[in-house]
Design a protein around this nucleic acid. Structure first.
Lengths: 154, 154
DNA sequence: TTAGGTGCAAATCATTTGCAATCTC
DNA sequence: GAGATTGCAAATGATTTGCACCTAA
């Protein structure tokens, strides 16, 4: 069973997203609502494929393309954070849709948040030093999570 | 004309890589040497395709697969840093083959180094706080480089 | 009624791989 | 001469897209 956020918070986030979709003239289909619910309920940064797999038992008619298209709409609204990976699928976070650091286990794929207060200051410094207009960032630490570290009997 | 490092430094790096290849029992073909030279001579973090294009005039017989395979060997030796991008090609740095921060222009693809002294400390803090064994990291700031910022008439 | 949405299947595109021919050592 | 390397072409795999049908508003 994948980890989830408190039911109340997830529901509130879904309501929030539904309101924003409607405000943009989007429709609310059962498939789209189901995708929103899975995303809002997850803390493990699922891939599109994982969202699809979690919904298949309940929505056998769902297609992967619909999951991707729903994610596209959320991206256009700036309401989902996409973590791109060339090998393996992209991972998503609809609960904290702005740039923030992560720890990534290169063995099992576990992906968790990690707070770094000074990041914004670093971004400002980078902008000032180079003349770039910095709009977002990505800070990932890659390695082995506790479980995978122990498996490798160190 | 792509930016390049000082001829002496690039040549020394090529010599270094050639030595390491030989030590591992690899052979030195004209194609492979040419790829090493382009990589060592570049500061703009070229993609495999860009390496291929830069060599085509001089080595019309070269194939993209050979560029990829040479990069694979360098990866196995830990002598090249690979920056993965899901959309667009991966970018490479053979001159500083360890994790270090970058600024990335999302408009023109410009990619340059940026030093952040406190990063190692942050990595240690992340490791201590979560139990992960942190092996490498990635810090990218995304935005508009000075030229692209001005183009958008702000 | 009518855009927007869905789902299938085909297309995309950087990268990888199988394999016969060709080189380096 | 042996084994690594090359280059072509086909395969891969996550994601995107075209399009006929459907359905929420």
């Amino acid at each position: 069973m994948p980890p989830s956020v408190s039911p109340g918070r997830a529901a509130a986030r879904v309501d929030d997203l539904v309101r924003q979709l409607r405000a943009r003239g989007h429709r609310l289909t059962p498939q789209r609502l189901a995708v929103l619910r899975v995303l809002a309920d997850s803390t493990d940064h699922p891939s599109a494929e994982q969202v699809y797999q979690r919904l298949r038992p309940t929505y056998p008619m769902l297609s992967p393309a619909t999951v991707y298209k729903t994610i596209d709409v959320l991206k256009a609204m700036g309401q989902i954070l996409e973590l791109e990976f060339r090998e393996g699928a992209n991972r998503y976070d609809v609960n904290i849709p702005v740039s923030h650091p992560h720890l990534v286990c290169t063995s099992c794929g576990r992906l968790e948040d990690f707070d770094v207060a000074e990041l914004d200051r670093l971004a400002e410094r980078a902008a000032a030093a180079t003349g770039f207009r910095v709009l977002r960032h990505r800070l990932d630490f890659y390695g082995l999570c506790p479980a995978c570290r122990d498996d490798r009997a160190d």
